[in-house]
Design a binder for these strands. Structure first.
Lengths: 194, 194
DNA sequence: CAGAAAAACAAACGACTGTTTGCTTTATAC
DNA sequence: GTATAAAGCAAACAGTCGTTTGTTTTTCTG
């Protein structure tokens, strides 16, 4: 009955594998990234990846989970620094966009790789993303808005435009993630003044 | 010197190939769709596709071109029915979203397949999409807005949120493409009233 | 230091990839 | 009606795909 369990070895390269997988999934997408690409980037042989993950889909899910964790963490920390509803939403929008465009690869994979493109893991990916987006639903619910304002539309419009910005954003430009998120919030906020 | 040029045959299946390619590219994305998938869907052998297209990338470009043509056509027709700037932009937004979510496969491929995912054709795809998006820049430029309003942000926010709706829109729901586009416009428009 | 588990190597499996080549069928044009 | 070009078939090319299996190396644990 002695289940001999041992701690991971100190020289293990799981973290490196995840980092390189995140980078490649973000750069080329899921289907266009091969297990051989990831293995080569991590300096190991293709078959070795299967010691850590039983399938390519599980590797993606692991990256996805870390991405959601990172964004959630940043957004929650940013929101906690404010008290007024609109300022909390603005802080969330800024943190969300900075996580996507500045933090690195994990976060971007979450909105770059579409769940429907990974049939065997779509359900798991959607569950992760839905849980995160509920954060924004709560922030929008707390806004002081005229009764006729469509809160769902407001939330979807904000998140949609933020997420889409990955496709046109250029690092060199003068528009920072923070400035973009703020201008979007301003466009929405002005509309809701009595 | 007699260059014997002949008309395409009446039984040719080029249109069918394009239709099936558009459907598959929309459903599974570019990388996950194989030439064999397309050939099988069109009821022919893989090699036969190369009579019509010299490479998979060219097949995508052909679908893309038709998609841009369709959206442009619908948006221009819708805009022409109105005179006041905000109504013209709203008509464009509605037509854009209906083209994506109702018209069919060609239009959706244009925003579903990312140019960067098709290295050999990225430049061609981007040129097509930029030309189309200039339509919206003109419509936004014509809006009567306060001097401090950021017109670029407004355009990017509108198009971004419209394009992102492909990811959450469900046909069964009560929200039609028309209603979604109108609620987005309303959120922006109210903000700009003096 | 000995034993065991962790982590990776080495090599291959069959299936699938985009594409090419040569040949055949068939509608069109004169 | 017959030459001719359009369209597609049939079969294969070399390469890549995700994954499996057996073995080896290396670190940790007692």
């Amino acid at each position: 009955m002695s289940e001999t369990q041992r701690l991971p070895r100190s020289d293990n390269r799981l973290k490196l594998v995840l980092d390189e997988a995140a980078r490649l999934f973000r750069e080329k997408g899921y289907a266009a990234t091969s297990m051989r690409d990831i293995a080569a980037a991590a300096g190991m042989l293709p078959g070795s990846l299967y010691y850590h993950f039983t399938a390519k889909e599980d590797l993606l899910v692991a990256v996805y989970e870390e991405g959601v964790r990172l964004i959630t963490e940043k957004v929650q920390a940013a929101v906690a620094r404010h008290e007024r509803p609109w300022e909390r939403l603005e802080a969330a929008a800024v943190a969300h966009l900075e996580a996507l465009l500045k933090t690195g690869d994990y976060a971007l994979v979450v909105i770059r790789v579409l769940p429907r493109d990974v049939p065997g893991a779509a359900a798991r990916l959607l569950r992760l993303r839905d849980r995160y987006e509920r954060l924004f639903a709560e922030l929008v619910a707390a806004l002081p808005l005229p009764a006729e304002t469509d809160r769902d539309a407001l939330r979807l419009m904000l998140l949609g435009s933020l997420n889409w910005s990955q496709h046109w954003f250029r690092e060199d430009g003068r528009a920072t993630p923070r400035a973009i998120a703020r201008s979007y919030i301003r466009l929405l906020r002005e509309a809701q003044k009595p």
